[in-house]
Design a protein around this nucleic acid. Structure first.
Length: 780
DNA sequence: AGCACGCCGACT
DNA sequence: GTCGGCGTGCTC
């Protein structure tokens, strides 16, 4: 009984007064977390027949309202816990079949609880993160089966409706039942109704247990190739090889110091793709030698596969875990992790919750990648969860990137991270900035191809070498900019691009919500040519084709690359040298074709700044560095050309001078001045619903309640907004947002949670929902 | 979240 | 007159 009591003291806030000295006669009550949007556990009785089998971490089936749900036991008590209702308690129905053979560990439960608290998410939703990926996306599919009565009934005694008869016939053909989703496909309303009457008549029953209890042992041995990445690309051609920077030779020593805790903080590794791969290899092998496990996180599936291929080519047996895998494959990997047969696990953000019990190394590759942040409700950031796990489980944490986030760079300055900069300037191409301020524009308002750009393409063509044109367009928000100098009207208070509303002819800051009439002239050059940023970039391909009709032009973007197979096909073309000029968006980086192009150009480098987000400059700087990484080193003729109207922007200056500090210092000063992260913490509140007026009203109300609550604490909390998140509704819902700036994440989060409770109690009409996003990473 | 119960408009 | 829409409250 001791361990049970100990665990419930650790896990449940309500049990603090439980004394471990009192000998527990027998455990009779449990607290259960349910997979619903509920913030607290529910108490149940343990039926005598399950007395010894219900322990902390066990998944159980419990009655909840009118239905049965799978829930997780988080505490066991000998007596009625305080706060639970005195009477009317129901008993646990049964153990969950799906999890009959394993328990969640205290670590896993603790991790889910930490996520719930850190990101202000209901614990029930966070439990799903640490559960095996079988039942994700809802409880084990409920199925409908014919009851004995229904089976016996051949012809209708009572007249049954047409639909009812039809449903009965379908069920008769399927003795094991039909999943609710399958059964209800088609005319859902009518079928639901028919089903309802059949259930009421006792002809059909509902069953929540899975058909076949998952036993995936024999079918999928760990290390099965279907779960392992195959090296998709041959090793980089010789012309793309960069030397490993000499400084990186210190890496093994640094690692060893980190492992033995001589270095007290986690590591921030800065270097190119290739350098990071080398360092990762060292770190992974060292970890495996110590019989520990390696967890590698990436921002996207392609990078995960690429790293897996790289490690596999060197004799390791990495396993992959990401959303591209089938549920079955994911479950197999999860189980292999649990059994301890996995030495290296590589995956996207979800993998950070994998049940690795001997974690020795957590490696976050591309730590600045925004995709590490989950945009759905447990809105966790995998980098942060990784940090938490590593420190709790005594693993070495390495954050790696070619261009670390400003958050991490600031953490280095504060001593919370130890920087390892393994950069070699000779890896970079020659950079050429073309100031387009006074160049004419094409008819569509887009950037024109400047003579140096055309010359660069021509030169590469002559040498039969690859050129890449990178279209750094990201934002979809309508933003104004000056047709002459490229400057954007910004919010005076928030310094983000103002969003333009054509209909009402006004501009609005979507951080603080302030509205103004459209400015008449450019704030910088007084030109009258303020216009919405166009889609002129689409013209680039056309212009290139017109200029070089004989060139073989390839395109990469969301439309041309739909499936992984498309990417592979294009990769083959590139490898074979069948493409002269490649034009594309961010997608280009997913091809993993780094250091290969002779000539790389950004026809409209400023496009990335036209996003109303305080991180837009940082994103642009990263995009520039990424573009540079596509090109060969200067020594072998690599060239990067940037067309810009903002040649004196610190991101461009930093790239042109090759001095990162130019960017970092100015950006930090900017963030500090305007009180943005990493100097403050942001919490974004989302109000959404189906009726616009109701949503905006609720948002106003929430902001007012927040301001009242923050009164007198102006130095630590500021409330901005509300403002419409975007004029296009998201999934048929209107969204408004509020921003809270606070001196610590706790302050902002606390005030948000308190007031949300209040608002939720107050009004739910119009399908209103109140969401909290702690440390939002995208503000669109 | 889901579900049931309850109160108001357009249909046989 | 009912059917069925959604708003509201509750779930151990």
């Amino acid at each position: 009984m001791g361990p049970v009591l100990l665990e419930c003291r650790m896990l449940d806030p309500r049990s603090q007064r439980a004394s471990p000295m009192v000998p527990a006669p027998s455990s009779a009550y449990v607290d259960v977390i349910l997979p619903r949007r509920l913030h607290r556990p529910f108490t149940y009785l343990i039926p005598p027949e399950l007395k010894d089998r219900v322990v902390v971490g066990r998944s159980v089936v419990v009655p909840f309202g009118s239905q049965d749900l799978h829930g997780l036991v988080i505490a066991v008590y000998p007596q009625l816990p305080p706060g639970a209702p005195q009477e009317g308690l129901k008993a646990i129905r049964s153990l969950s079949a799906a999890s009959a053979d394993h328990l969640l560990t205290a670590d896993q439960i603790g991790l889910s609880q930490w996520v719930a608290e850190r990101y202000a998410a209901p614990w029930g939703q966070c439990i799903k993160l640490v559960l095996p990926p079988v039942g994700r996306g809802g409880p084990p599919q409920p199925r409908y089966v014919l009851t004995a009565q229904g089976l016996a009934r051949h012809s209708s005694v009572d007249p049954l409706g047409e639909t009812e008869t039809e449903v009965l016939a379908r069920l008769r053909r399927r003795p094991k039942g039909i999943m609710a989703t399958t059964l209800l496909k088609g005319d859902k309303a009518r079928l639901t109704l028919a089903l309802h009457t059949l259930v009421k008549q006792g002809l059909v029953g509902r069953c929540d247990e899975p058909v076949a209890p998952r036993t995936l042992r024999s079918t999928m041995p760990p290390g099965d190739t279907s779960a392992v990445a195959l090296p998709m690309e041959p090793e980089e051609a010789a012309d793309g090889v960069e030397p490993t920077p000499p400084k990186a030779m210190l890496w093994p020593t640094v690692l060893e110091q980190a492992r033995t805790k001589q270095t007290l903080s986690p590591l921030l590794l800065q270097g190119t793709h290739r350098t990071r791969q080398w360092c990762l290899m060292q770190a992974a092998q060292a970890t495996i030698r110590l019989e520990k496990q390696v967890l590698i996180l990436t921002g996207d599936v392609e990078q995960a596969s690429r790293l897996a291929g790289f490690l596999a080519a060197r004799g390791e047996r990495p396993m992959l875990l990401h959303s591209g895998l089938s549920m079955k494959a994911r479950a197999a990997v999860w189980q292999a992790a649990q059994e301890g047969s996995v030495k290296i696990l590589i995956g996207t953000r979800m993998a950070v919750f994998a049940p690795l019990s001997r974690l020795g190394l957590v490696w976050v590759d591309g730590e600045d990648d925004a995709s590490l942040k989950e945009e759905q409700v447990p809105r966790y950031h995998a980098r942060e969860v990784a940090h938490h796990r590593a420190s709790r489980e005594g693993a070495v944490l390495v954050l790696a990137s070619n261009h670390p986030s400003l958050e991490s760079l600031s953490a280095v300055q504060e001593g919370r991270l130890t920087a390892c900069v393994y950069r070699a300037p000779e890896q970079l191409p020659r950079v050429n900035v073309i100031d387009m301020k006074h160049s004419p524009r094409d008819v569509g308002g887009g950037m024109v191809l400047s003579p140096p750009l055309i010359e660069g393409l021509r030169g590469a063509l002559r040498q039969n070498a690859l050129s890449i044109l990178y279209l750094n367009r990201k934002g979809f928000a309508s933003v104004l900019h000056c047709g002459d100098c490229g400057a954007m009207p910004q919010c005076d208070a928030c310094s983000v691009a103002l969003t333009f509303f054509r209909r009402s002819n006004h501009v609005r800051c979507h951080y603080c919500g302030r509205t103004r009439p459209v400015p008449e002239h450019c704030p910088r050059c007084q030109s009258l040519k303020l216009e919405p940023v166009g889609s002129g970039t689409e013209r680039v391909e056309e212009a290139v084709r017109r200029q070089f009709p004989q060139a073989r032009v390839g395109r990469v973007d969301g439309e041309t690359i739909r499936r992984p197979a498309d990417a592979r096909a294009l990769h083959r073309l590139l490898t074979a040298g069948d493409i002269d000029i490649l034009i594309g968006t961010q997608m280009i980086f997913r091809l993993g074709f780094h250091g290969r192009a002779l000539f790389v150009a950004l026809p409209d480098a400023d496009a990335g700044l036209h996003v109303p987000d305080f991180r837009s400059a940082e994103r642009m700087y990263h995009a520039l560095l990424d573009a540079a990484a596509l090109a060969r080193p200067a020594a072998v003729g690599g060239q990067l050309l940037i067309q810009t109207r903002l040649a004196e922007h610190h991101a461009i200056m930093a790239l042109a001078s090759g001095d990162e500090e130019v960017f970092v210092q100015q950006e930090q000063a900017f963030r500090q001045m305007l009180q943005y992260p990493p100097w403050t913490c942001l919490v974004r509140l989302d109000v959404s619903g189906t009726k616009e007026a109701v949503v905006s009203h609720a948002a106003e109300r929430w902001a007012a309640v927040l301001r009242a609550r923050a009164a007198g604490r102006e130095r630590t909390v500021a409330v901005l907004g509300p403002s419409p998140a975007s004029h296009v509704l998201r999934r048929g819902r209107y969204c408004w947002q509020i921003l809270i700036k606070s001196s610590s994440p706790e302050v902002g989060k606390e005030i948000a949670m308190r007031t949300r409770e209040e608002l939720e109690r107050e009004s739910r009409r119009g399908g209103l929902r109140y969401d909290i996003d702690v440390d939002p990473v995208s503000m669109a």
